[in-house]
Simulated scan of single mutants.
Amino acid sequence: MLQRIQTIYLLLVVIVNGALPFWVYLWTDANGAAVYAESDVLYSALFIASAILAFITIFLFKNRKNQFVLNRLNMILNLFLLGFFVYRSLVLSGEINISEKGIGMLLPVVSIVFLVLANRAIKKDEDLVKSVDRLR
C-alpha cells in the first residue's frame, strides 16, 4: 500500500528535511556569508532526525495508528526546530539588524504542512477501514 497519497506527502517531508537544508541557506551572518544546516550540529541533527522519522513512517502503512502517532511526533520535532530558529533570530543580540533570514528557516513550516496533510489522509484511510468493518 505504498501508493497512497500520504506516502507522497511523507516523501516530500523526507526531501524537504533531508536534502533542502543543505542546499538552501538558513540565514546570512554579519559578514554576509550564507549559513547552511551543516554548519550547526543541532540544526543538522534535527533536520536529519525528522527526515529519518518520516522515512520510517512510510513503511508503517500496515499500522495506521503508529503512523499517525509518529507523524505527530515529527510535527513536534519540527516545531522545536522552528522554535530554535525563532529564538536565534529574535533573542540573540544584534541579529535582528545584522543578519538576513533565508528561505531555509521556512522549511520546518513546509514539512509541518505536509505532515498535517499526511495525517489527514491516514485518518481518512482509518475511517474507511472502520466503515467497511461495520458492513461485515
Rank of each mutant, 00 (worst) to 15 (best):
L2V: 08
Q3L: 13
Q3P: 00
R4M: 06
Q6M: 01
T7I: 08
T7D: 00
I8W: 11
I8L: 14
L11Y: 03
L11S: 07
L12A: 13
L12F: 07
L12E: 08
L12K: 07
L12Q: 06
V13R: 03
V14E: 06
I15Q: 06
V16W: 09
V16Y: 11
G18M: 05
A19G: 02
A19V: 14
L20D: 07
L20Y: 03
F22C: 02
V24E: 12
V24R: 05
W27E: 15
T28D: 14
D29S: 08
A30Q: 11
G32H: 02
A34K: 13
Y36D: 04
Y36V: 08
Y36G: 04
A37R: 02
E38L: 12
S39K: 14
V41L: 14
L42D: 07
L42F: 04
S44D: 07
A45Y: 12
A45F: 14
L46I: 10
L46P: 03
I48K: 08
I48L: 14
I48Q: 04
A49W: 02
S50R: 04
I52K: 05
F55S: 10
I56P: 00
I56L: 13
I56V: 14
I58N: 01
I58F: 00
I58T: 05
F59G: 01
L60Y: 03
L60I: 07
F61W: 11
K62M: 06
K62A: 01
R64F: 01
R64H: 05
R64L: 15
K65L: 15
K65P: 02
K65G: 08
N66T: 10
Q67P: 00
F68I: 10
F68D: 11
L70K: 07
L70I: 10
R72Y: 14
L73A: 13
L73Y: 03
L73S: 02
M75L: 11
I76R: 08
I76Q: 03
L77V: 09
L77M: 13
N78F: 00
F80A: 13
L81A: 01
L81D: 00
F84H: 09
V86A: 14
L90M: 04
V91I: 12
G94P: 01
E95C: 01
I96F: 07
I96Q: 06
S99W: 05
K101L: 12
I103H: 04
I103R: 05
M105R: 04
P108R: 03
P108D: 09
V109N: 02
V110G: 03
S111H: 06
I112F: 10
F114A: 11
L115G: 07
L115A: 08
L115M: 07
V116Y: 04
L117F: 13
A118D: 02
N119R: 08
R120D: 10
R120Y: 00
K123R: 12
K124V: 11
K124C: 04
D125W: 05
D125N: 10
D127L: 14
D127Q: 15
L128V: 11
V129H: 13
V129T: 14
V129I: 15
K130L: 15
K130W: 06
S131H: 11
R134S: 10
R134F: 09
L135E: 12
L135I: 15
L135G: 04
L135R: 11
